[in-house]
Simulated scan of single mutants.
Amino acid sequence: MPNYKLTYFDLRGRAEIHRQLFALAGVPYVDKRIKPEDWPTLKPTTPFGQLPLLEVDGKPIPQSMAIARFLAKRFGFAGANDLEEAQIDALVDLLNDYMTEQKHFFGVLVGRVPGDKAAATKELFEPARDKYFPLVIEKYLKKSKSGFLVGSKVSWVDLHLAGHITTYQQLIPGAFDKYPEVIAHRDRVEALPAIKEWIAKRPKSSY
């Protein structure tokens, strides 16, 4: 069996989807969590000066979406065929467009960027949410027979979406209450036995 090592900060953040893929697959790995003060020393040793970083038998794979796609394909959570795989990739791209559109809001939300949280919620988050989430719901969730976004089983885009909903509902209570379909989807994903077990034991963090 390959040796896997995932390096990231002691947060859910961009690495949580990878940890959940390992949990779903039941595959052991090293979950290396670094402190912020250790990052300046580690940064020059990484391929792109960024985290998360996955090492497979010592070979590095950078970039969070590349890591997620690699693990999902390897573990069987990237679609049942090439059409499903393409649909999953398209949804991931759509969600990433949404996140890019309101990325400055997240900085304000967690205190990295100065600004008024209430104003940023109204001006940045809510317009992006209301632009993209009706597409996700109407085009995918309402047409789904399985309760998951694509196909008959959970895939990595389900983890991507559910993780975002959990984080934002935690930081902004009621953030997605107007979209009960995505709340129900998140609950369905987090009720999967392997995911439920992981959530119960993972280190606590604000995001």
Rank of each mutant, 00 (worst) to 15 (best):
G151C: 01
D93I: 09
V108Y: 13
I88T: 09
V92F: 10
A72P: 04
L159V: 12
M99C: 10
I88L: 12
F77H: 12
G147F: 05
V136N: 05
V92C: 11
L91T: 02
D158C: 01
W156S: 06
D89R: 10
F148M: 02
L94W: 00
A120N: 09
D89C: 10
Q87M: 13
K143H: 07
A72S: 14
K122L: 15
G79C: 13
K122R: 15
G111K: 14
K73E: 04
S146L: 08
P114C: 09
H160G: 03
N96L: 15
K153Y: 09
F75K: 11
T100Q: 14
H104M: 14
T121R: 10
F75C: 14
K143A: 08
D89G: 11
E123T: 15
R74G: 08
E123G: 04
Y98I: 08
D97R: 03
A118D: 12
V92G: 04
Y98R: 12
A68D: 06
V150R: 01
S155F: 05
K139W: 07
Y132A: 03
N81I: 10
S146K: 12
A80R: 02
L141S: 07
G151A: 06
R129T: 09
G115K: 15
K122Y: 09
D82C: 11
F133G: 01
Q102F: 15
G79F: 07
Y98C: 14
K103T: 09
F105T: 03
F125D: 01
D158H: 02
V108R: 11
A128R: 06
L149T: 01
D130L: 11
V136P: 09
V154I: 13
G79Q: 03
V108Q: 10
F77G: 02
A72K: 10
S144F: 08
G107R: 06
A86Y: 06
K131W: 02
A78L: 09
D116H: 07
V92I: 15
F125E: 00
M99L: 11
E101W: 03
F105M: 03
G115D: 01
F70S: 15
A68W: 02
E101T: 03
A120W: 11
R129L: 15
D158I: 08
M99E: 05
G76E: 03
E101C: 08
A128E: 02
K153I: 04
L95V: 13
P127E: 05
L91H: 00
P114N: 09
V157I: 13
